[in-house]
């Protein structure tokens, strides 16, 4: 079983494209079932559990989140938001083929828009990936917003 640096980088670009195109079923299928999506509230936060985060969601809550986006009575998504990720080439920080653990860091700009509003966030995403049956999967994902301690309006899609 092997994976190249290019495979890993392509995987991360594909993930961002799924989010931008709203292909959430495909996106959820990337995840291992015990994974967590973590978005810290504090700069260099180390504890996801005992202080507040912006998000710390398991697969079930991520599924609720994306299901809701298409609901008939999801008022904050009438009209819908759109988003756009611009990725810098990811750093593959670690590849351990023995254990199948891979760690990457990706800097990106995230744009979300709805009605007349548009917002830009500068992000650093850290992925823990796993190679399972020859396929890359997301084990965990941490997304740090550069100005995480600023006051935001709604951030409705997935940075």
């Amino acid at each position: 079983m092997s994976v190249t640096k290019d495979d890993i980088i392509d995987f991360l670009y594909d993930e961002a494209r799924m989010l931008d195109e709203g292909r959430y079923d495909d996106w959820l299928a990337l995840w291992l079932k015990d994974g967590h999506y973590w978005m810290p509230l504090d700069y260099k936060q180390t504890d996801p559990l005992n202080v507040t985060s912006l998000m710390y969601e398991d697969i079930f809550m991520l599924k609720v989140r994306v299901e809701r986006l298409n609901g008939a009575r999801t008022f904050s998504q009438k009209p819908k938001s759109r988003c756009h990720h611009v990725l810098q080439r990811p750093w593959v920080d670690e590849i351990d083929l023995e254990s199948g653990r891979i760690r990457t860091t990706t800097q990106m700009h995230y744009i979300e828009t709805r009605l007349d509003e548009q917002m830009l966030l500068a992000l650093t995403a850290q992925h823990d990936l796993a190679l399972i049956d020859g396929r890359l999967r997301i084990a965990n994902k941490r997304v740090d917003i550069l100005n995480c301690d600023a006051a935001f309006g709604n951030i409705q899609l997935l940075p």
Binding site: M39, L41, L49, N50, V51, T52, S53, L54, M55, Y56, M61, V64, R65, R68, T74, F75, S76, A151, F152, G153, N154, I155, Q156
Partner: peptide, 23 residues
């Protein structure tokens, strides 16, 4: 931990509950 979970789930700018309130 439960309180932190409540805070982020219900009252964050990223909260699916907060989104509809603000709307």
């Amino acid at each position: 931990a439960r309180t932190a979970m409540y805070n982020r789930m219900i009252n964050a700018p990223t909260s699916i509950v907060g989104h509809d309130d603000l709307e």
